[in-house]
Computed example of a mutant assay.
Amino acid sequence: MTSPGCASDPGLDDVSDRTTETERAVHGTESVAELRAFLSAYASEQLGSPIRKVRFRAGRIDAVWGVELDDGRAVVIKGHRAPTGADGIDSTDGIPAVDAIAAARDAQLVLSAAGFPCPEPLSGPDDRNGRVLTAETLIAGTVPDGRDPAVRRLLAAGLARHIDLLRARPDLLRRAGAGPSWCRYQAGPWPVPHDSIVNFDVTPAGYDWLDGYAGRASGQILTGRAGAEVVVGHADWYAGNTAVQEGVLVGTFDWELVADTEAVIAGFAAACYAASSTSGGGLSSPAEAALFLQDYEAARGAGLNARERRTASAATAWIVAFNARWEVAMPNGTSEEGPNLSLAREHGQDYLDLAW
């Protein structure tokens, strides 16, 4: 649901002539050479060394460059997309967008100090000519197949562990806020999307059922989470944002935070954990989501109670609904429904009633 930060290393210096759509949205330039010069100057100023080589360019929300510096360090530099709210303020909970980025940085510092496999922040958030930049260490690794049961267990364990580690920083609860748009069920359908390429203001004819389904999911979450402890976790926890080597989780990327109950965050992850380029992408089936939540309970060393299970199920359903709504808003030039719409239409109740 967000830009991949995984550090592939093709060994190529990617200097194609024109920037990507994401790079243009973030940096406002069509020239890769101009953007490289800008980022190299930033690296020289903040990290003490200019860019020698570009390893990769990625990102669907933020513009992500994996680079090697002249001093030999491998670094990721991110240009962060402007927030959807006015004046740098998030449109739902009034948290300045740069504060949410700083909260993610502080979470990474806590986790990396504890030996958790995430990049170590090096600089930022820094404002350069109205653009918000961050830099962090680059971790090389292979994007895993999220549908491999062993990987599923690694992901469940990694989620449980980092949520537990971040309990030591209760200040992150306020600073993280409600997270990116796909986490924002609180007001019912629909949140302001995180990318202006789609508009959720008016649901097209024939999809009123999807509004109703999302409303049921959000209502079930709100009922179940009432009075429960709020924690902080990764807002986009899925295989495509991780790296695995020899059966070990060695990297976790794109650290956007969400503050919510443990059941809700686990349900969000259950919906999308398997998605990656190696597993063919796609949201979880109800059976796959249930298996992830079962593994999550095993990793945390305690089962979720009946109320928490219903909450996690509803959070899974909400993510399916959100992604289906995104498909509705994206013109695809065909009359065929996308895969997420099909999941919501055919298995909507199954997600709300997950059993494990």
Rank of each mutant, 00 (worst) to 15 (best):
D90T: 03
R55Y: 14
Y42P: 02
G59N: 09
R73D: 06
G48M: 03
G66L: 03
D99K: 14
S40T: 11
I51Q: 02
F56V: 07
A82P: 13
D87P: 00
D71C: 11
I77D: 08
V67Q: 09
R57E: 04
A97P: 07
I89A: 00
A82W: 10
I77G: 08
T92K: 11
R55F: 14
R81P: 09
I95F: 02
R57V: 15
G94N: 06
V98K: 09
P50Q: 08
G59Y: 07
S49Y: 03
G48A: 09
G66N: 01
P83L: 06
L47D: 00
A74M: 06
V76A: 05
L47I: 03
R60T: 15
D71E: 07
S49H: 05
A43W: 04
H80A: 11
D87T: 05
K53A: 15
I77T: 08
V64D: 01
F56M: 13
T84A: 15
G94E: 04
G85R: 06
A43V: 04
S91W: 14
K78C: 03
R81C: 08
T84K: 11
R81S: 12
G72M: 07
D90E: 06
R73W: 06
G66M: 00
E68P: 12
V54R: 07
L69N: 02
R81N: 09
R60Q: 13
D62M: 07
L47Y: 01
D71N: 13
I77C: 04
R55V: 14
E45R: 15
S40M: 09
I95Y: 00
E45P: 06
V67M: 09
A86C: 07
I89V: 13
K78Q: 08
V98E: 10
G66W: 01
G59M: 10
D70M: 13
K53Y: 07
I95G: 00
D71Y: 05
R52H: 09
P50V: 07
I77Q: 04
G59A: 06
K78R: 15
H80Q: 02
H80W: 15
A86M: 12
D99S: 10
V54L: 12
R81Y: 10
T84W: 09
D70G: 13
K78A: 07
V54A: 09
A97H: 14
A43I: 05
R60K: 10
P96D: 00
